[in-house]
């Protein structure tokens, strides 16, 4: 009973998160995110969409413990998140494999601080590479791998730390459609099927609707939640499924509605409140 009760607590509880960005020379800071709150459950796939520069990557960095919020907190099952932790793995757009290490060495890097012997690290990394279908490529350097292979290598490295939460920053852009679909399947089977919570940042609405249980729409700057869409349909989903198309339409509407308001605001600002416009323009940079 006790373990079940523990399992009910969300993996992440984000409450009233406001994150400031240091701005260049004058040391002044501008809020990149504003009052963002949500939960991430075990095994859940949460997508965050929104226009570029809206603070999506900042949000992800905050969930990784890489930046500290100005207001609010990220709470995990182990307490408040105040520093990076190996329980939260992050995969960046190009995979961010270390270019001076072989694929296998990249994976063992993640195992280094987990108290394994050299032999165990070797065994485990080979096993992880097999799981992402990269067996036999361990001796290659990242520049010798294709985009999809790099991404799978990054998945293997993320798996190595045995994370509770996987954070993905635009992971599938710049890949061809077939590779993308493969990686979607692998992402779900390797991570969310094992209870890992996934937060995926993307500007691709269709991708968000194909993968996610829940989609949060950010707009700004500063980025704040303007809409939330839940999709209760089994995966795998296809881009032309009705649920996916309907969700995309909802998302697009949420984004354009906001755009419309913005145009209106800008008009108001021009006709008097110039300061508001200036703030918005400066913020957008």
């Amino acid at each position: 009973m006790l373990t079940e009760a523990v399992d009910e607590t969300p993996l992440l509880r984000v409450s009233k998160l406001t994150v400031a960005h240091e701005r260049g020379n004058d040391g002044q800071s501008v809020d990149a995110l504003w009052d963002v709150s949500f939960d991430l459950e075990r095994g859940e796939v949460l997508a965050i969409v929104g226009p570029s520069g809206v603070g999506k990557s900042t949000l992800l960095a905050a969930l990784a413990g890489l930046v500290r919020p100005r207001v609010g907190a990220v709470t995990t099952r182990h307490g408040a998140l105040v520093a990076p932790t190996s329980r939260h793995a992050i995969v960046f757009q190009d995979g961010a494999l270390f270019p001076w290490l072989t694929l296998q060495q990249n994976v063992t890097f993640a195992l280094r601080r987990r108290g394994f012997t050299r032999f165990e690290r070797q065994e485990r990394s080979s096993d992880l590479l097999r799981r992402v279908r990269l067996a036999g490529h361990g001796d290659k350097f990242p520049h010798e791998l294709s985009g999809g292979m790099k991404k799978r290598g990054a998945f293997a490295r993320a798996l190595a730390t045995d994370p509770e939460v996987l954070l993905l920053d635009e992971p599938f852009s710049a890949l061809d459609v077939a590779t993308r679909a493969e990686l979607h399947d692998e992402l779900l089977s390797l991570f969310s099927a094992r209870g890992v919570g996934i937060v995926i940042v993307t500007h691709d609405l269709t991708e968000a609707a194909m993968l996610a249980d829940r989609i949060i729409v950010l707009d700004g700057p500063p980025g704040e939640i303007v809409s939330e869409v839940a999709i209760r349909a089994p995966r795998p989903r296809h881009a032309d499924d009705t649920v996916v198309e309907a969700a995309c339409a909802d998302l697009a509407k949420a984004l354009t509605r906001r755009r419309g308001e913005e145009r209106h605001e800008a008009h108001v600002a021009r006709s008097g409140r110039a300061l508001g416009l200036v703030a918005r323009v400066v913020g957008a940079r």
């Binding site: 890489l66 990076p84 280094r112 601080r113 490295r157």
Partner: peptide
């Protein structure tokens, strides 16, 4: 040095 590399390493326990 791309910040992603250091960020990734920090989530793997390097500091």
């Amino acid at each position: 040095v791309p910040t992603e590399l250091e960020h990734a390493a920090r989530t793997m326990g390097a500091s």
